[in-house]
Design a binder for these strands. Structure first.
Lengths: 203, 203, 203, 203
DNA sequence: GGCTAAGCGAGACGGTACGTCTTGTCTTTAG
DNA sequence: CTAAAGACAAGACGTACCGTCTCGCTTAGCC
């Protein structure tokens, strides 16, 4: 017979203190951008949030998960979803997307948080998957969809490799950000779009 | 005028024990691929290498620097430099390069080391610069040079944006590796080359 | 006005774990008598006590302070205070005291702990003061009081130098123990008392 | 057949560098009185002496042995041996001895070295024996001899316990020094002599 | 007068304890 | 009766020193 285990006390999400949750994510975000990923500690987050450490451990499995949620909260605030503009003009629409991506990566306020999460996902595959699923995938899928709609109306060639095209757009920006190999500005976004589109446009 | 600093005892590189140095880099590489970046400790590297911790701290300023040197040693062993093939056929040459890049990223043996260094450079800008200067930049420059030589003989269009073209080639592969968004194989490398070249080829 | 200091987090004695405290003192005592003062380490004490090192550093400023408390705990257990017997017969009473002192110094179980603390107080004046105040002074004062009461009833001469008399009693025993210059037994205690009293006794 | 072992290279005392030896003892003495026993390191002694660490390890088995030799060198310089005065007047002679002992213990220059050696001999019985044999024993024996010569001429009682009498003289001074329980001056020395002699003097 | 063996200054080495820091769990206490 | 505050066990951090070793350089004494 199965019986009620004296369980490691799964906390009851219904009783979660939203004020504390928000304070924790805010503190995590603020501290990350102040001291950087390497010097970030759970203790400091708890202290800044005016919260006991246990309250963090109760709801998140790791420091990376807190950072991820902090990043997610910010992104969710900013966007409402992966709404891609469709003005009918593909180059313009892609420039809009790429400029937004590049601007986000160039934002000094968010930079350290982005890098902290990037560091964490190198060692936490589950977190990496979650990040892709929640933030990256929707954006890439929306971009792919926009490319397919453009292909349907003949704005790009029939045999265009849409999957690769999306990576041709996003890959360079992330590469440059990751390795700090050059400036991240609107002009750069436009050059990516121009070069990536060159091979797609019917002659 | 430069003057003799009352320095905190810079160690004398001439007296460096090469056996120990090699053992440290080997241990760092092996341990990283065994336990991953998060669980990697200087203490464990020293123990595995049969070396005192101080011998590591004497020659490297941080764990990241050790990992970087371990990565560098491996790359230096493998290649002799950024020799890019020049068969005269640009697509073939680029496929060779991209396939090598993708293979390196897909190599499970090196994966954790690559990710560990990637995590470290998020928090250590100097290390990031060194990595780019020593490993990435030469490869990118060589690729750019190959593209310019192709442009000179008319294999790609006169107005091709070489700098962006290089990022169009490398960016997608790193993006896919960083975020684990898809398989990294020769076919993938070929697709990148095909799509990136499409816009460069004269019609 | 006294004000709340932004203190480096003085720990709260009310929350102290008594089990841990006791385990630490026991481990310190046991290890000292096993390996001696020179080979004694905080790390080993913590390990033996099943305690984190920080729990030692939280409550004691130095290894010497731990040893001192270990010694104190033992002494406090043994005695209830500096109760000196007063049978009315001074030589008998002093023999009782000196025999106890000599027996304590001769006890092989306590020897290494005594020597460890003796070594520590050579380099830590504050600790030396504490040791004297808590352990030596009471005993010496009690002995002086007993001598004065004997003087009051004419058992020793009017002009007896009580302060020196006390040192004449204790000094030789400690000297012999410190320098291991001879046996420490009851007969030795009796010889000290006899010689020291000879000059005090009225003729 | 016995043959010359490739021995752990006993060093050849004939080739010993006296300048280095002296510099080491001087440095040990100076550093001890500057930084105290706890902060004294072989490394620092070597550096101060302008000597390699190995030169110390070649000639002394331990830090304690170096300190002991430093102490010995100083004492040997000062005295030529345990010459006790014999003016014919015992109290005067003993006052001379005790005043010298007390002055040595009170000397702030030598204090830390004395305490360092005292700390070392708590953990090194062989060193303790050597100290007693070379420095303490001669002085005590000379004092005992003086007391016996006094006894022979009837200046002290026939049944005087000479061995204890010596400890009655030296014990209090060392006790007071060891535990810092009071001032060490000539008046104190005189009080010891007066009290100790009181019981020895024929009535 | 040259050879050679040893002592020497210097300092890198393998170890290990130091005292501090952070982690994740457990306990106390104040609201 | 909850959650902050924080003590706890554990163990890595980066530093310091230990005692050994390996370098060249100097020096002494035997050929």
């Amino acid at each position: 017979m199965a019986y009620a285990l004296p369980m490691p006390n799964e906390p009851d999400p219904a009783r979660r203190n939203l004020r504390a949750q928000r304070a924790i994510l805010d503190a995590a975000r603020a501290l990350t951008s102040e001291v950087g990923y390497g010097a970030l500690t759970i203790k400091a987050i708890a202290a800044r949030a005016g919260v006991g450490k246990q309250t963090i451990y109760r709801w998140w499995p790791s420091k990376g998960a807190v950072l991820f949620d902090a990043l997610l909260a910010e992104s969710t605030d900013a966007e409402g979803g992966p709404n891609l503009p469709d003005t009918g003009d593909l180059p313009t629409d892609l420039r809009t997307v790429l400029r937004a991506v590049v601007a986000e990566l160039a934002d000094p306020h968010a930079d350290r948080l982005n890098r902290a999460v990037t560091a964490e996902i190198q060692d936490d595959e589950a977190l990496a998957g979650e990040l892709v699923r929640r933030l990256l995938r929707p954006q890439m899928d929306a971009t792919a969809a926009r490319l397919r709609s453009a292909r349907a109306v003949g704005q790009i060639t029939e045999d265009a490799d849409v999957e690769i095209a999306v990576e041709l757009l996003f890959g360079p920006a992330y590469h440059r950000w990751l390795l700090r190999t050059g400036p991240l500005d609107a002009a750069y976004a436009d050059r990516i779009v121009a070069s990536a589109l060159a091979g797609l446009t019917p002659r």
